[in-house]
Design a protein around this nucleic acid. Structure first.
Lengths: 111, 111
DNA sequence: CGGTATCCTGAACGATACTG
DNA sequence: CAGTATCGTTCAGGATACCG
């Protein structure tokens, strides 16, 4: 009746599935928290740094560059002295916010 | 009118917020993919191992133990020879599935 | 202020071998 | 089959110093 030999089934989450893609983004120690911190307002580099607490400057810079490359975060440099750089979510980043909110809620209720 | 000095505001995502709690789960290289793979059916250790592709036995064991400790995955040992162990999502784990589905969709559309 | 540039450490993960 | 036990490696992130 039923084929017992599973044909190398696509239960597998290899490369093609969304979950394995997002893994790389969430893997970063600070990335979700950066998105969460930016979810309601634009922030300057220093603010973000302070808001996150224990992250180092270099780590923050790196994670921000990666989020930028993934199209989740936007960087705007004001040509001023002293320098001023603001970070905010992109359109794509904003689309993710509702999910973050749900995740937050779930997490508080279940962890 | 408005207090310009932000009073060490609770924009901060320190410990108390759900996002920082879930970070630890997402941090594991395989955890979300394990949850995703188990999201529709119970699987044996070996099946899971194969479904995930490149993970090693020892790594899988470790990640499963951690997911168990976090109450997301259930482990059932059949007292048989040869041994047989089945893994499935707990109630809590199942509650997370709808979010996983949304995340998957979002990921496919945005990454 | 908002970065780079180095250097370095720890933990996570992989590889491999062995076992009830 | 489903592990455990070791060992080795990689590399993300921390620490620190310096710069436009």
């Amino acid at each position: 009746m039923k084929n017992e030999t599973i044909i190398d089934s696509e239960v597998t989450c290899s490369s093609s599935c969304g979950i394995s893609k997002i893994q790389k983004i969430f893997a970063g120690k600070w990335k979700i928290m950066i998105l969460w911190t930016l979810h309601e307002r634009t922030m300057r580099f220093g603010e973000l740094n302070r808001a996150l607490g224990d992250i180092t400057q270099s780590a923050l810079t790196k994670q921000l560059r990666e989020l930028e490359a993934d199209g989740l975060v936007k960087r705007y440099v004001y040509r001023e002295v002293p320098p001023r750089v603001e970070y905010s979510l992109t359109e794509t980043g904003n689309n993710f916010v509702p999910l973050l909110e749900q995740i937050n809620t779930w997490s508080l209720e279940n962890l």
